[in-house]
Amino acid sequence: MEDCLQTITDYGLRSIGIGERLLPRNDFTLCQQFTLIGSGMIWNIYFGTLALIAGFFLAVAVALGKASANPLIRKPAEWFIFVFRGSPLFIQFFFAYFLFLSLKGSYPIFSPLTSATFGALTVLFLNTAGYSAEIFYGALQSIPKGDTEAADAYGLTGWSKFRRVVYPTMLRLAWPAYTNEAIFLFHSTTLVFFAGFPAFQQKGDALYYARYFADKTFNPFVPYPILAGYFILLTLVIIAIFGWMNGRLNRHLPSATRARLRFRPQLIR
């Protein structure tokens, strides 16, 4: 037990470069595997959270763009969604990495983008924005006509109509599907070091360390289930947070109607 505490102090923050420099090399214990894989989760949470928050704002903008009547705005928005929803994430990582490298060659200001910390975050941000925009667009299309008519009747126009009527209703309708997108996004963060970006000084995400142990012990049946366990926990936390937000979004509705809103099969992801 004491050994394990020592392991946790040595490796608990290894994924961000704090603690022992050398990874364990022999006599692997369960404690080491739990600690290091858990330490790697820091990266998954970092990528997932920041991409989700930043992606949310872009997604709302792109969704409004796709719903716009002006083709100069609508067409780019449609293409953005189509490209990011239509291609596998790992191909996006591949092209982004090459693009960032050549950008770095001509403009040194882009050099942080070739590291996973910022480059992969950018790709995940654009990717989730594409998926979420489609969800929000679907929700925009299914806003009850009565709601917007009522807004018109109150004399609401432009920004205040959007902020008070359109936007809250859109969020409410999109929320269950958006929860799923959040889960998928956190799962996708495991691809960063797996297929996209190089790992620097053995600082990697949970899957990176799980692979490290699988590679050293040649036994995939311990590290990967540990990784799976961490992700199930993470998913439960995401569902809880989004469920709480869903309650906030629907707090004005009578409780019977609220239950019905839990499932909107308009769009899942």
């Binding site: 050398l22 990874l23 090399r25 797996f194 297929a195 190089p198 790992a199 620097f200 000084q201 053995q202 692979r211 490290y212 590679d215």
Partner: peptide, 24 residues
Amino acid sequence: AAQAGTIQASHVASMEGATLLEFA
């Protein structure tokens, strides 16, 4: 730079001042 999961990668990881960059 070294390929992840090779003996070269573990060698670089154990070199004192060097920084390991792993690729697939």
